[in-house]
Computed example of a mutant assay.
Amino acid sequence: MRYLLVTLLLTLSGCAVQPQPFSVVIDPLSPSSIRYSGEINPENVTLFEKLIANAPTRIDSLIINSGGGDVFAGIRFGGLVYQYKLKVVVDKVCASSCANYVVTASDDVIVKSGGLLGWHGGALQPFYQSLMLSEKQRSEVKLSAQQAEYITHWRKAEEDFFKLIKVNQTVTVLGMMPELVDKRDAPLFSYDQQTLKQLGLNITFEGEQATTSSSGDYMVQIFNLSPDVLDMLLIQHDKRLLNN
Rank of each mutant, 00 (worst) to 15 (best):
G38T: 09
V109E: 08
T172M: 08
V229P: 00
V102E: 01
L12H: 05
L241I: 15
A53Y: 03
I203A: 04
S30N: 13
D238R: 14
V103D: 03
L86Q: 05
K163L: 14
I64T: 04
G122S: 07
S144I: 05
I63S: 03
L47I: 03
L180A: 04
G68I: 06
D238N: 12
Y82P: 01
V109Y: 08
E158D: 15
Q137Y: 01
V173I: 15
P42Y: 11
L9C: 00
D217C: 00
G200K: 08
S130Q: 15
K142G: 00
S30K: 10
G68E: 11
I59D: 03
I222N: 02
Y82T: 03
Q20Y: 10
Q209K: 13
V141L: 07
T152A: 15
L233Y: 12
D107I: 01
Q137P: 01
L4I: 13
L225C: 06
F77M: 07
R58A: 04
R76I: 02
Q169L: 13
R184C: 10
D182Q: 13
G68M: 05
E158C: 09
N41V: 06
Y82I: 00
A123D: 04
E43K: 15
D27A: 11
E179N: 05
Q236A: 09
D228L: 14
D228A: 15
E149A: 14
D192E: 11
M232V: 04
V6A: 15
Q198C: 01
L242D: 12
P42S: 08
N168P: 01
L8Y: 00
G69N: 06
L225R: 09
Q18I: 03
G175R: 04
G175Q: 09
K156M: 10
S190L: 02
D217K: 08
P56I: 07
S32N: 15
N54Q: 14
N202A: 08
S37R: 15
Q198A: 15
G207N: 08
L117P: 04
P21W: 09
K163D: 14
L196G: 02
I26W: 04
S106T: 08
E49R: 10
V93K: 13
T172L: 12
E135G: 03
G216P: 04
S61F: 00
F162P: 10
Q125M: 06
V88K: 07
Q20W: 07
S30D: 15
I52S: 04
G69F: 05
I235N: 02
Y82Q: 12
I63M: 06
E206K: 09
Q209I: 11
D60P: 00
Q169W: 03
C94F: 03
S113N: 13
A95L: 15
A73E: 10
K166R: 13
L201C: 11
Y82K: 12
V220A: 03
A55D: 07
D27M: 06
V109N: 11
Q221H: 09
F205S: 07
S96I: 02
R2H: 13
Q194G: 12
S106H: 10
V102K: 04
K239L: 13
M219P: 00
N41Q: 10
Q18C: 05
H153I: 01
Q18H: 10
A186W: 08
N224M: 03
D108C: 07
I235F: 11
D91V: 02
S215A: 14
D231S: 12
E135P: 06
V71H: 07
V25G: 02
T46Q: 12
N100W: 09
L241C: 04
